[in-house]
Write a protein that binds this DNA or RNA. Structure first.
Lengths: 143, 143
DNA sequence: TCAATAACTTGTATAATACAACTATAATCT
DNA sequence: AGATTATAGTTGTATTATACAAGTTATTGA
């Protein structure tokens, strides 16, 4: 019956998230949020905190602090917006790009190890189903 | 090629985790960790913080605080261990069980909505692959 | 022009986590 | 048996990610 799958998925998702949160706390690796913010800037180019907060669905203040902390590490530059003196553009630096890239590679590496023994088809299916789940979740959030 | 799937999965996992963490912060729902601790006590019976910390792979101090906070809410009782005066048993209460159950139902409900339109087979596959991923992750942690 | 709005920062709070220092009890080793 | 070591648990302190509320400066529009 349907209930079984839902129960299984609920259980697995809970464990999945908990382990990731727990592990990230321990290992000193670049924090999830910094990674995501850098990725955002790298993919879509410079932006101000409001736009970023919108995109990432976070509070503006949260993004403001994350961005400041990236500026401190010289991973991003804070450029004044000449057309609007209230706002800025955060732009990823060379160093930031390198850091992002090396982080990406590390993640891929780890994930590759995790997926050892999976068939190509299983990997594709897993990615596809996760994506589908995420799309639904994002749609529901944006209401 | 393989790289594509890995990239997709990495991306989806990052987004997946971030959204869940972010959403949980907003909605006032029972915190992930409290839920997991209650579930643990409900499934495996009373235990002390050391055993719980072991099981959940968390620091003892973390579990100690989580347990205290559940005691305050009357979701668990703290019973002295007669055989060892250093230690205690945390036991889920009636109220705690009810709270856990209602939380479970809520989660199932939400998940059911998320999986609307998925075939039975897709759901089974998703659960199975998540479980497989988790098993690997847990194995790797325990080394 | 001046009140309302907008972009951003900073203060304060909460949850989950870790590590380190501490207390009380138990176990072990002369 | 007594001294030392190990164990179970708690508490202090720190970090990360988050939100909401208050504050500052700049822009807009009636």
């Amino acid at each position: 019956m349907k209930e079984d799958s839902v129960e299984l998925i609920e259980r697995q998702i809970t464990d999945f998230v908990r382990r990731i949160v727990m592990t990230e706390q321990r290992e000193g690796r670049m924090e999830r949020s910094a990674y995501i913010l850098l990725r955002q800037l790298s993919t879509y180019g410079p932006a101000g905190v409001k736009a970023l907060a919108n995109h990432l669905q976070l509070d503006i203040s949260t993004v403001s602090r994350q961005a400041s902390s990236l500026v401190e590490k010289n991973y991003v530059e804070k450029l004044p917006n000449p057309d609007d003196k209230r706002s800025y553009f955060y732009k990823i630096t060379e160093l930031g790009s390198e850091e992002l890239e090396s982080n990406r590679r590390e993640r891929f590496q780890r994930l590759n190890e995790m997926l050892e023994g999976w068939t190509e088809e299983e990997q594709e299916t897993f990615g596809r189903l996760l994506k589908r789940y995420n799309n639904t979740a994002n749609k529901r959030l944006n209401m």
